[in-house]
Write a protein that binds this DNA or RNA. Structure first.
Length: 154
DNA sequence: GCCAACGTTGGC
DNA sequence: GCCAACGTTGGC
């Protein structure tokens, strides 16, 4: 089992939106970055755990933990001209080059693991999240870091 | 709203 | 295949 971190702008899709979804399962689409896609397509397995990270908001940080319940499948939003995630290249090719996965809410953190707390935690210093200029919206989380986060905030 | 870092695009 | 221009990300 692996650990991941996925970023979402809470205005667009938040932890509470996930919890409020049918069966607390949401589909994670709209990823439009090859590195992020490749993680989802090639490495995401059912049972993997995902740290749900709120980005571009007042208090960025990890809101809770979700579980991968459906592995990568074509992200159809790329083919929909009305979607904000529309991708002309995919549409012209007649097949989406992007993928989505389904995740299920597993545990909401009583208090979020804020970015500033994470940053001030020596044990988490090496997290990809904290590396300068790092913007990947889907990224692996080292098992040591994952265990630390779960122990402290989970 | 600013801006640095980074990815993508497209002309050559 | 290079690289400049452009767009996006995301913290502040």
């Amino acid at each position: 089992m692996k650990f991941w971190l996925m970023k979402s702008e809470p205005d667009v899709f938040s932890w509470d939106d996930l919890e409020g979804s049918l069966n607390q399962i949401g589909f994670w689409d709209g990823v439009r970055n090859y590195q992020a896609r490749n993680f989802m397509r090639d490495e995401f397995k059912c049972g993997d755990l995902v740290f749900f990270y709120h980005s571009s908001c007042n208090s960025p940080g990890i809101a809770g933990v979700a579980e991968v319940v459906k592995e990568a499948y074509p992200d159809k939003s790329a083919l929909d001209p009305k979607s904000e995630f529309y991708d002309e290249k995919s549409a012209k090719a007649g097949a989406s080059r992007w993928v989505a996965v389904d995740v299920k809410a597993k545990q909401k953190f009583a208090t979020p693991a804020t970015l500033s707390e994470i940053r001030n935690t020596p044990a988490l210093k090496a997290m990809l999240l904290l590396q300068p200029g790092q913007r990947l919206s889907v990224q692996p989380v080292d098992i040591k870091h994952a265990h630390y986060i779960l122990k402290r905030w989970g």
